[in-house]
């Protein structure tokens, strides 16, 4: 599945296509945005929230401070810099560096490491486990049409806890909408069909 979302910012079409090819081999990822100029890149990252940003610093004329400042805002994403310069790892800080003359094996290896790191963090969000008894209880209340606040009040827990549970339920089941969750709850006899408003 396309678990890892990637934004590529690179001016050279040939390098972009080369990267594309390697990313296809890497698998489990999806390039959600490609850019060939720096303009608008950092503004769009806030909404795109990619797991990985592959960037050529030349797009910003090698402005290390700007890149450092903007990429520092990216939480939970990996930054990969592509460059022709030998001492790139001294000039910038990033999770990985790709040099123009790196071979395929080396680039793949470097990206594999980042990918497994990312997948580990995603795993921590427990995507494959069955939902717990506690979560079933929350799910039942969601299906009954209660709001987060109402669920929190009924179960004497904080809204924040309810939100966290909801997030986990959605991730485990792969169902996002309330009506979808309701159908699941009925199918699994958490609530009866005539209880639904």
């Amino acid at each position: 599945m396309n678990n890892i979302t990637i934004v590529v910012a690179e001016a050279s079409f040939l390098i972009q296509e080369g990267l594309n090819n390697i990313l296809k081999k890497l698998g489990d990822n999806q390039v959600i945005q490609k850019m060939d100029k720096g303009e608008g890149l950092f503004e769009s990252l806030g909404t795109l929230k990619p797991n990985m940003l592959i960037l050529n610093p030349d797009l910003f004329d090698g402005n290390a401070d700007l890149i450092k400042q903007e990429c520092g805002k990216l939480k939970n994403s990996k930054l990969v810099l592509i460059s022709n310069a030998k001492d790139i790892d001294k000039k910038y800080s990033a999770d990985a560096f790709i040099h123009y003359y790196d071979g395929q094996a080396k680039i793949l290896e470097c990206l594999e490491t980042l990918k497994s790191d990312l997948l580990k963090t995603q795993k921590k969000e427990k995507s494959d486990e069955p939902i717990s008894a506690r979560e079933k209880n929350i799910l039942k209340h969601i299906a009954l049409g209660l709001t987060n606040k109402e669920i929190a009040d009924t179960l004497f827990i904080s809204i924040h806890t309810v939100v966290t549970h909801r997030k986990n339920i959605t991730q485990k089941l792969g169902i996002k909408s309330v009506s979808g969750l309701t159908v699941y709850a009925i199918l699994n006899n958490l609530i009866a069909m005539d209880e639904v408003k």
Binding site: G174, I175, G180, L187, N188
Partner: peptide, 15 residues
Amino acid sequence: EEKLMDLKTIMIKYL
């Protein structure tokens, strides 16, 4: 698209 995806998931995984 959320609901449409949920419908598919339910039909494939849970029903």
